[in-house]
Structure formats: C-alpha cells, structure tokens
C-alpha cells in the first residue's frame, strides 16, 4: 500500500492511526529491550512523537513500519545507555508481574536476560516475523551479522530457558 504523504507534517490523526496499527508491536519490542513496562510505554510515546515531528516521507507501509522500529530501537538504546551511565536501578519486571502467566514469564525472562544485540534480532525474527535481510536493513547491520546473532542468540536463549525451566 502506498502511503505517500501529501501534507507537510503528519497530523495527530496520522499518529493516532500509527499508534493503533503499530502500538502493540512497538510496545513488545521496547518491552523486551527495556524490560520495564513504564519505560517501554514512554519509548513508544517518544517514537510516535518523533514520527509526528520529523514527518518522514514513506514509500510504503513496510517502510513506515521499519522506520518506526528503527527509531524505537534507537530510543531504547539511548535509554539503556542513560541507565548504565546513571546506574538506574531496574526492577525485575518479570518477577513482579502478575499480568503474565508463569510459563510466559520464563521464556520472556530468558529472552530479556540475553545481551541487547541478540534480544533485538531474535525479537524481530521470531516475534515480528522479519526476514534476515529485512532485519539487516532495519538495524543497519550486515546480513552475516544478523545470521551470526540469530545463531548465537538461539543458542543462548535455549541455554537460558533450560536454566529457567530447571528452577
């Protein structure tokens, strides 16, 4: 679907539509990367505000979606960098969460325990259904880097999940 913008800037309605279409997807990504619900919600909000402010011109719906993911992952990275710099204490969302069934907490906890570079690639590949070439484009990394991260990420996730399972 072509989504060429005719206006100078997207309206609040455009952003609201993006929120409706991509809000949950962006939240999943941000939640896995940040491991905190409140921070993830803030990251989604910030992503959509940038969408509104920057008024990018998209070639397609797919392009728009990829742009939003890229911006969201950048925002999450910045937030993680801020946390590490100021040593923010991050609560264990999964341990406290009453919203997720225990079996979900385990697999999500295992995923969230992985280093950032594996989390983001696994998330985009297995949950959002992107192909390796598309992930390379979105994250601006090489195809071989995506494949390597997927391979190692799978291995690490399996190990982490097995450990969680044994507890």
């Amino acid at each position: 679907m072509q989504n060429e913008r005719e206006k100078d800037t997207p309206s609040a309605q455009d952003a609201q539509e993006a929120l409706a279409r991509y809000g949950d997807m962006l939240f999943r990504i941000c939640f896995v990367l940040l491991r905190q619900r409140q921070d993830a919600e803030d990251a989604v909000q910030e992503t959509l505000i940038r969408y509104l402010r920057k008024a990018p011109r998209f070639e397609s719906e797919q392009h728009e979606k990829a742009w939003l993911i890229r911006v969201a992952t950048n925002i999450c990275k910045n937030a993680l960098r801020f946390r590490s710099r100021y040593e923010t204490v991050v609560s264990d969302e999964f341990a406290d969460s009453t919203e997720l069934p225990p079996e979900n907490s385990e697999i999500l906890g295992a995923l969230c325990g992985l280093p950032y570079i594996y989390r983001v690639v696994l998330q985009l590949y297995y949950v959002e259904g992107y192909k390796t070439a598309e992930i390379a484009q979105i994250l601006h990394i090489s195809l071989s880097a995506v494949k390597k991260r997927l391979e190692k990420g799978r291995k690490l996730l399996k190990e982490a999940y097995t450990k969680e399972d044994l507890r």
Binding site: Q16, V32, E41, V44, N104, I107, L108, V127
Partner: peptide, 27 residues
Amino acid sequence: KLENAEQNLRLSTSARARIGAALEAES
C-alpha cells in the same frame, strides 16, 4: 512459545489513552 508469550504483551488501555493525548498535544 516465545511468539505466543509475547502476544500477551500489549499496550494497556490507559497507556494507549495517555500516548494518544500526548500526540494530540504535540500536534
């Protein structure tokens, strides 16, 4: 399992409303 688990991860209604209001104000 991971895919299924993540289907439960959704923006809450209150968060959606808050973000919507923020977008409106920003616009």
